[in-house]
Design a protein around this nucleic acid. Sequence first.
RNA 1: GCCGUCGUAGCUCAGUGGUAGAGCACACCCUUGGUAAGGGUGAGGUCGAGAGUUCAAUCCUCUCCGACGGCACCA
Length: 638
Amino acid sequence: MITIRFPDGSNREFPKGITGWEIAKTISTSLAKEAVAVRVGEQLWDLTRPIDCDTPFEVIKRTSDAGLDILRHDTAHVFAEAVKELYPETQITIGPSIQDGFFYDLFREESFTPDDLKHIEERMHEIVNRDEPLTREVWDRQTAIDFFKSQGEFFKAEIITDLPAGDEVTIYRQGNFVDLCRGPHLPSTGKLGHAFKLMKIAGAYWRGDHNNPVLQRVYGTAWSTEKDLQDYLTRLEEAEKRDHRRLGKEMNLFHMQEEAVGSVFWHPKGWALYRILENYIRDKITAEDYVEVKTPQLLDSSLWEASGHWEKFGENMFVVKEEDKTLALKPMSCPCHIQIFRQGIKSYRDLPLRMAEFGACMRNEASGALHGLTRVRSMVQDDGHIFCREDQVKEETRKFCLLLLNVYHELGFEDLTIKFSDRPAVRAGSDEVWDKAETQLEAGARASGLSYTLNPGEGAFYGPKLEFILKDAIGRDWQCGTLQLDFVLPERLDATYIGEDGKKHRPVMLHRAIFGSLERFIAVFIEHYAGKFPLWAAPVQAVIATVTQEGDAYAEKVYQDLRAAGLRVELDTRNEKISYKIRELSLQKIPYIMVVGKKEAEEGTVSLRKLGGEAQETLALHAVIDKLRKEAIPPHKR
RNA sequence: GCCGUCGUAGCUCAGUGGUAGAGCACACCCUUGGUAAGGGUGAGGUCGAGAGUUCAAUCCUCUCCGACGGCACCA
């Protein structure tokens, strides 16, 4: 007999060699039905694998995270089996589970088409219906390698060859399909169910290296129930509706075109939003004793050579030849800020010196990297550099973190994660300097009450950094804010200050941004609010819409009064029915519609309708002005 | 940059080896209508660019440009 310990702490005895599934059945049939695997000690095991010794034990249900993971992995196997049945010449490589589903990387001369995916998906459903048992086998390594080679599966053979020497080579068999896999898997394909769907085909390099062959990657989604699948597909649709590229067009905020790839044409409403956010952040940093500067965009290559950018990022810089000179458009503002710092002699009394710029930067991003406003070639950073002494790093870090948290909070973002990236393998500066830098940056982050995850080895070559990551509506993470410690640039560009001792010292430089780029942040802002901006940030805060021409004169007065009160309003006196105007203005996501007709003109009122609501309230004109003015106060002035 | 898909009216999209169509938007007319689409008429396109095949190309082939989805990249 063996003793099985359950998660609630209870123990029970079972005969040696009992399977996890059998144990689950003794608890309840519904649990056994929900079970996809079991946890035996630290490991996840197949339901059908015999258990030989005393162990902590837990049933993994299909709805749990670990369970879903197994389901998705199983779906990948069923996918691979279907592919091998339909297109036997295909080599299969890896097929892991990922967020919301799985992917499988395939090698085949011919491209898979969307039609092929349909056929594969149909075959997958058939395989599920066949209810093929999955069995686990432990193979000798060389046997496995030879087997896969004999099957023409050279990628698989390579994977096995590269497995760590001590690892067991386990094989899973389902029907005629044999695959290398760590497991665990469901007892049979029938248990998988039908809540999966193949989504798209993409290219991916073998082992993620662009020197390797390109494989065809098929993405699929898989869930424990068909309802979950449906919900997921609905979520995708909803996310698409708030895609900033779509809303940018629909709301007439901006556009992009062939002649300016990677750059933005801001339309009046988009530019209004841009200026509102720029001015907001300007207010915030001014209150924190930043000084704002503006530096050149076109600079001689000698400066970039001195700063190290030429060597390290030259490929991403736009270069301009001018007679005997070589100039480059700035990809970032830091070297320029050091030039300002270097003007005149700085004293330790001048530190910390917080220098900010809305810096227009150009980076020659790879064409495939461009994406709406989130990845552009021409952008404006809410850049800033804090020049300080080493002993001021902690306090400056703390201050910045608090400012950033406050800004994100005021703008409505609460879902924030932080990564602390420490020294990379290739770096400048001594270990002693890095020790100090990491310790202080960490201490500063701690002092602000932030929790963060470690991102080992991902720091910049000149110093460790904090990355602030927002989650957008589609669930994508966006790195917006950043704080980077830099001991190298001040050295390279020879920034000094005079210390208390009367001698020259090197300042430390903190590179920092809250939005990152205005463009990217606006994209995130649009998606976060699905275009329904808070009143203070809405480009057009209200539209006065007339019912008939009888209301025109009064509507004009309302319009002028609202404008005089500092509100961004428009007047809609078109010859259209009021319901038509309401529909159109609602689709434009105008926060308030003010309906003005004969009745309102006589009473000196407006009928106010809030976006998303159906109820209206009729208020005196002055009351409406008060109400909107109050609501339109930016968060930092409340 | 790489792999794949796509590019037709301002927008969303249909379509065909014999030089094109819908809905919305736009213009004009009728309508003055009270909270998510009133009606009529009209204008609008070198079918992304270039080359090739063909009697004939928006459609087939190739090259280029761009967009989209991934991959790689993201100081």
